[in-house]
Write a protein that binds this DNA or RNA. Structure first.
Lengths: 211, 211
DNA sequence: CGAGCCATGTAAACAGTTACATGATTCT
DNA sequence: AGAATCATGTAACTGTTTACATGGCTCG
């Protein structure tokens, strides 16, 4: 259901083509939910069949065409209903923790490399999420600006704060991942004091640390 | 691949039936990875067909039977290979943050109820994970004891520490979820000062808080 | 003998990934 | 003319959920 929710929510900002949705899924909303175009196009068709969105075909140049989707009143009602549902938390599925639990089966060097990559990835992710968070609060984010333009000014504050709140959660998670992975690196170093230096060297040359 | 990894890793502790695996997936490993029996039984058959595990049928009473699976040498090699692979972090899919980003579409009461449920759930989860963490470090955990019995004593420390490390990650995540949800509750209260009390009352009577 | 546990499946539907495919428009 | 971007799909496969099914064992 999350993909549908993401699509409907996105279309409340402005009408879009499937291609536009793709673009948003590569940035902004894409950090909250991502889907490839092979899932987006069919799903928009399904939403249209359900009457939740409406698509109109529009010419593009001489022969080209594109399909612009807007959310319908029914779609807004459905969105509101989904948003009001309390879905009980999903059972956790955690590939990182699963793998870490059995690190005794990996070479220490490779466990180290995995945790180092984790640090690199989530350090960059945290930066990115924090940037988004700040852009939202400052109302610099382009899609957010369009969204706000369509609704009364007295609701702007709530809309902005909710989005910032969501990103603050992403920042928090990313920071947690980094702290956790560092804890793991320290553990590996304490278990294999002899390997430490060689791996550290490998990491410096390997992972193209961006910080 | 995570399900297979979880199954193979589990079978390194001791041979098990599909039913035993189910039991473990309802506790211990189940916090790291979960699958219903409808996925476990066919997957074990597939692993057997691949030669990664070996199943022997054993009588149970007069007419009953069960199938006990053990990991093969090939399975151990495969497990080691998977553990050494550095899988680059998956694209984030985050239903909670997605939903929170569009809370302006929910009734404040219902947004509040969702975050309150989040707090309750992850508070309980944190307790549980912390308990597991402590049981592991103290080597009280039954499956862990069996696992340690099969390997040289000089490897015990590493095995125990890796498992504890994984659970420490779960504890960290759960705590992050609670903090985040509380941040959201505070936000809702600041946006709707008038609603606060009524919702608070509803929460106290509603969610059977266990702390 | 009934309740609760042990034990194992199939099938349909839904969600997500990966591979394969096509073509127009715009800018340089 | 070629590259970058806009635009949209189908199909096969893998993974996960949900519904439907069955039957034996053990203990009170």
């Amino acid at each position: 259901m999350s993909l549908r929710l993401a699509l409907l929510a996105l279309l409340t900002a402005r009408p879009m083509t499937g291609f536009d949705v793709m673009g948003q899924f590569d940035e902004s909303v894409g950090y909250l939910w991502h889907a490839p175009h092979t899932q987006i196009y069919p799903e928009l068709r399904k939403l249209e069949a359900l009457g939740l969105v409406e698509g109109v075909e529009v010419a593009r140049g001489e022969r080209g065409k594109k399909r612009i989707y807007s959310i319908t009143d029914l779609g807004k009602t459905q969105l509101r209903d989904w948003m009001n549902e309390v879905d009980e938390p999903r059972r956790d599925r955690d590939p990182y923790r699963l793998k870490a639990a059995y690190f005794e089966w990996a070479e220490p060097e490779s466990a180290y490399a995995q945790l180092a990559a984790h640090v690199v990835h989530y350090t960059a992710a945290e930066q990115l999420y924090r940037q988004m968070h700040d852009d939202i609060l400052a109302r610099r984010h382009p899609l957010l600006k369009q969204r706000l333009a369509n609704i009364p000014a007295d609701q702007h504050e709530a809309v902005v704060r909710f989005k910032a709140f969501a990103y603050s959660g992403l920042v928090r998670r990313a920071r947690g991942e980094v702290d956790w992975a560092r804890e793991g690196l320290a553990l590996l170093e304490s278990l294999h004091p002899d390997l430490k230096l060689s791996v550290d060297t490998a990491r410096a040359g390997d992972t193209t640390s961006t910080t």
